[in-house]
């Protein structure tokens, strides 16, 4: 099977303001460039989902110094950058589009809609990013738990990006 091409320079036609979408992808690029400079602008990636694995290539646009300086906060960058990777991933893997920010208490960060699905078939998206040694599987379990505890009872996707590893790991779990 061909590797899934997750392209941060073309993350999909999401329903977010273009500047906000570009911002998330730019932050992801800063994190990836810092951790995988020798492979820039593309790194091998493993998408883990439902017990299976799929190889992928994660591509980004090289950030300039101004962009690197603006995203020096590692924790914030890993969280916002993970959102950029998540948006590009759900688009490439399932044709999900981000439609709106989820409300506080819904258990999710974002609400998605799949191309061609019934108009009220909203899916929740909960995202996290890790830079360093934190356990990605533990983080994924936490995100799944947050989705299950949320007040909005709709299907969800929990997604965690482990930026530091090579290949980069994207852990995705569907929560019915």
């Amino acid at each position: 099977m061909e590797p899934l091409r997750i392209d941060l320079t073309d993350p999909g036609p999401h329903g977010l303001p273009p500047s906000k979408l570009a911002d998330r992808c730019e932050v992801a690029a800063v994190v990836l460039e810092a951790l995988h400079a020798e492979r820039s602008p593309e790194v091998d990636t493993c998408l883990e989902r439902g017990g299976g694995e799929r190889s992928a290539l994660l591509r980004w646009r090289r950030p300039d110094q101004l962009q690197r300086d603006a995203n020096a906060n590692k924790l914030k960058a890993s969280e916002e950058g993970a959102e950029g990777v998540a948006f590009a991933t759900v688009w490439r893997s399932d044709q999900y589009l981000v439609k709106m920010r989820a409300y506080h208490g819904s258990g999710a960060d974002w609400l998605l809609h799949k191309v061609g699905a019934p108009p009220d078939a909203v899916v929740r998206l909960e995202v996290s990013g890790i830079v360093g040694e934190a356990n990605a599987k533990t983080r994924l379990r936490e995100k799944v738990q947050e989705l299950r505890a949320g007040k909005l009872r709709r299907p969800g996707i929990a997604l965690v990006v482990a930026f530091s590893e090579h290949p980069v790991r994207i852990l995705l779990e569907d929560v019915p």
Partner: peptide, 11 residues
């Protein structure tokens, strides 16, 4: 869900 008010609201 493509209502521009939702995009603006998210913004």
């Amino acid at each position: 869900l493509d209502d521009p008010r939702l995009r603006q609201g998210s913004d």
